[in-house]
Design a protein around this nucleic acid. Structure first.
Lengths: 155, 155
DNA sequence: CACCTAACTGCATGCGAGTTGCAATAACCA
DNA sequence: TGGTTATTGCAACTCGCATGCAGTTAGGTG
């Protein structure tokens, strides 16, 4: 299920921080949960559930995907984690504060560009003007063609 | 300028038109292909492959979903058909000219708003200014919260 | 018209992403 | 230390979509 926007974002600076947050909410701190947290804190960009379950390709013990999904979901419920849909692949998960960013993806070269929300405030204003919508690009990105692909096509 | 990119768009006004187009390209006109065309021409909004295979819920004979996918793909290759990804559901297909539109989806109420590309040219300009990207919202929509959901939340 | 052949179908089967049921395990509390 | 119950881990399942293959058929040819 998609966690609705506006959900509280819980900032945690470390794994211990997150562990305290879990206990404060009456949740248990299991080995599987710790592994998910380790993966999220170790990553510098959003991760798929599979990659977390695979142990980030060897740097962390592997775990069960079903548990990973369940834990990512509970973490999202707590506001600890958010997920993004970049293009056609699986959902990608990141710590909520890491993931303050918004995304653009190029459908020619599949590159992903992350940026600070402020950079897209002009876009948000234009969307609001055109439609009354308040747009967010942190859950579903802006899709189009990046500058270099356009240049490469001599446009 | 509103350039609906993504390959040549072949405009066909009727099923017969589409059939001619197929034959002109050396493709055969089978019963299964006709059914897909019938569904697309009968629809007033983008359809899932499953709905086409189900015969639009009884108004058209059912067909095999694998063939539907294959034919939608070949039709896309010809520029006859395009598909959209609206939210989390399956891909939705429409005739290329019907689908000259671009989309906004509200992630609070899941409503979909279609609009003419020109309406979002201001947004495109803002995206270009902010990132150098040339954005399109006919394949992946703008996602956010619609005016009524924002009003309902007293925002 | 009938025939031939490659394009196409339809079924089965598979795959990737994500979910769920359930018995076994293990956190946390007393 | 022991009890209780949240959580795990496995298997099995759904859903969207793709593919291998034997059988069918569109449509050109004689």
């Amino acid at each position: 299920m998609t966690v609705a926007r506006g959900g509280p974002t819980t900032h945690v600076a470390s794994i211990d921080d997150a562990v305290h947050e879990l206990r404060a909410r009456g949740l248990r701190v299991s080995a599987a949960r710790r592994l998910v947290l380790e993966a999220l804190f170790a990553a510098d960009s959003p991760l798929s559930a599979k990659r977390i379950a695979d142990g980030l390709g060897g740097t962390i013990p592997r775990s069960d995907v079903a548990s990973v999904y369940r834990n990512l979901e509970t973490f999202e419920g707590l506001g600890l984690v958010r997920h993004v849909h970049l293009g056609h692949g699986p959902s990608l998960y990141a710590l909520a504060q890491t993931h303050g960013r918004e995304y653009l993806v190029c459908e020619s070269c599949d590159s992903v560009q992350a940026c600070e929300p402020a950079q897209l405030d002009g876009v948000r204003a234009a969307v609001h003007l055109a439609s009354g919508y308040e747009a967010r690009f942190d859950h579903f990105p802006i899709v189009g063609r990046c500058a270099s692909c356009r240049a490469a096509d001599g446009e």
